[in-house]
């Protein structure tokens, strides 16, 4: 990397401790280079390239049409709306569910807690495709659970839990999201000072008051940080939906997939949609981060 050399050359003119410090810095920097190169090649360059290409039409003329399409064409408007609603719903389900599981988990004896948490790491290693098919086997129209319930109550086959609509899809994602949230919230709960809770109790607070005035304010920044991870993940959620309903549901991520690889092959349009997706996610994260900071400031 050329950036390292000027520092080295400059360092020769400086004496003593300053020089060794400069050398130390440049060494650190050298160690960072592989990471920076990786980041540049696989993160920054593709995003810039994509954003750049999204400004041209298929013939290579400069245009903003792809962005105009993204906000005016009904199919994209609905995709944006669906993605926002879906990401919010899935994050809330995951966030709230995960928080409660974490609250229970930290009260377990260490051995059980560790077992539970390591079991919870499992879903995150599974491919979305595998999980989708597992849920079809378990909860599909002819899935084990539906069959059992129908048998047990003598219900007709028209009665079933519908895995192939939004509630079903959100539920499948909860399988990933709840453990993810649990893992991040478990750490937050562990850091919750029990003295605070005891102090509140001693001062006569009822359990719900303890939650409302002590526990929740302390947990909220961590909760919001966890929610950011959830929301960012869910905005791009894609593999499991595709395996469950194919293109029958309209999500921004599916529109991008459809435009880039599977069908219409309109890369500039896909690029524009991806930039919109990134912008929405960034805005969501900024909002969550801002409220977390505000709360943290108010707390002190």
């Amino acid at each position: 990397m050329p950036d390292g050399k000027p520092t080295m050359a400059a360092s020769r003119q400086i004496r003593g401790p300053v020089r060794s410090f400069a050398r130390f810095i440049s060494l650190e920097f050298l160690l960072l280079i592989p990471f920076l190169v990786f980041l540049g090649l696989f993160e920054v360059y593709p995003i810039l390239n994509m954003a750049f290409r999204s400004l041209f039409d298929l013939e290579g003329n400069f245009t903003l049409q792809n962005y105009i399409n993204a906000f005016t064409k009904p199919q994209f408007q609905i995709a944006i709306r669906n993605s926002l609603l879906f990401a919010t719903a899935a994050s809330l389900v995951g966030g709230i569910g995960g928080t409660f599981v974490a609250a229970v988990a930290v009260r377990l004896p260490a051995r059980w807690r560790n077992l539970l948490l390591s079991l919870y790491a499992l879903p995150m290693t599974l491919s979305g495709l595998v999980v989708a098919f597992a849920f079809i086997v378990l909860l599909g129209r002819n899935g084990v659970l539906n069959l059992l319930v129908r048998r047990a109550f003598g219900l007709p086959p028209t009665v079933y839990f519908n895995l192939y609509d939004w509630p079903g899809i959100v539920m499948v994602y909860a399988f990933f999201q709840i453990p993810l949230m649990t893992l991040s919230m478990a750490a937050v709960f562990e850091n919750l000072d029990p003295n605070l809770v005891e102090a509140a109790r001693n001062l006569g607070a009822r359990p719900w008051q303890v939650w409302r005035h002590v526990v929740i304010p302390v947990l909220l920044p961590g909760f919001l940080a966890g929610m950011s991870i959830q929301f960012a993940g869910m905005m791009g959620a894609f593999g499991t939906v595709l395996a469950l309903v194919g293109m029958a549901k309209n999500l921004l991520s599916l529109q991008i997939y459809s435009h880039s690889s599977e069908s219409t092959y309109n890369l500039p349009q896909a690029g524009a949609l991806a930039v919109v997706l990134i912008a929405i996610t960034a805005a969501g994260l900024a909002l969550l981060g801002w409220s977390a900071r505000r709360l943290a400031r108010r707390g002190t």
Partner: peptide
Amino acid sequence: LHKMGLIATVDPKVTVDKFQRGE
């Protein structure tokens, strides 16, 4: 048909898995 909620999946390539499973 989509609005009526009749369409379960729209597949980008041919598959019989869900039909075979009765989904």
